[in-house]
Computed example of a mutant assay.
Amino acid sequence: MREWIPVSTSPKGRLVLAAVKEFGARPFEEVTVAELAAAAKVTTGALYHHFGSKLGLYAFVRDDVERRLLDRMEGALAAASPTSPSPDGPAPVNSAAVMSALLVGLDFAVRENFLHILGEPPSGTAQDALADLLGRHAPAPLLGRILAAAWRAALAAIADGAPPGQARAALAALHLRSPG
């Protein structure tokens, strides 16, 4: 698993750190450009200079946070899978590994307070890296999209005040079986 490399204390780096904190804890619509600039101790012009817009900064931060999530989930999948993928085909299905990845990802998102930034599917793209990762390891490829939606619903429930343990238990109650 790669570790996240801290950004510099440059104005751009401070904007990224402020955005990670704000977009993780609050919905995109509730975070203002002025708040981000003030938290980073820069002008709003610096945000527009480095990222073009609030959405540009959000997309940059979302990509970084999602990569950290996927690194952890891939590690959980690898650790919980008793066999290696065949060089000739897809990895064998291991429901316990998929469940482990979902729970590791949930624990990470809660611990880092990334409830809002990871609780929504990526916008502006048809690509959903979380659903793709889960689909490669789930008993059926479409199940990746369904599991990603359930995982995000668990984060949304926590953001709305549900105890993390209840959301974790709800995910753990899912039973994945191979079709047929």
Rank of each mutant, 00 (worst) to 15 (best):
A78N: 05
G45Y: 03
P139W: 04
S10F: 05
A40M: 09
G180H: 01
A169E: 14
D71Y: 12
L130C: 06
P164L: 11
P179N: 10
R67L: 03
L102N: 00
P90H: 10
E3K: 12
H116C: 06
R62E: 14
L118C: 11
V31W: 09
L77M: 07
H137E: 10
L142V: 03
T125L: 07
A156S: 12
R168S: 04
G13A: 08
R168L: 03
R68E: 12
A157D: 14
K21T: 13
L55C: 02
M99L: 15
V61Q: 03
L171Y: 09
L106N: 14
K21N: 02
V16T: 09
K54R: 08
M99F: 10
E112R: 15
A129R: 09
H49I: 03
H116I: 03
P90A: 10
I5G: 08
H175A: 13
D132G: 11
G45L: 01
L77V: 01
R72E: 00
S100F: 00
V33I: 14
G75R: 05
G45P: 00
E35P: 02
H49Q: 13
A46K: 08
E30K: 02
L57A: 05
T125C: 10
A173Y: 01
E66I: 03
V93I: 06
A76H: 06
W4K: 13
R152G: 11
I5C: 10
A97I: 04
R177A: 10
P82V: 08
A39H: 14
V110M: 00
P87C: 14
G135Y: 11
D64R: 15
G180Y: 06
E74I: 05
L57P: 15
A40R: 11
E120P: 03
E30N: 06
N94E: 11
G180V: 07
I158V: 15
N113H: 13
G45A: 05
F51G: 07
T44K: 08
R14V: 09
L155W: 05
Q127N: 05
F114L: 01
R168A: 06
A173N: 07
A40I: 02
V7Q: 06
A19C: 04
A101M: 02
S81N: 06
L47Y: 00
Q127E: 13
Q127F: 15
E22H: 12
M99H: 08
S123I: 05
V98G: 01
A129S: 12
P122R: 14
L115W: 13
W151K: 01
D132E: 15
G165D: 13
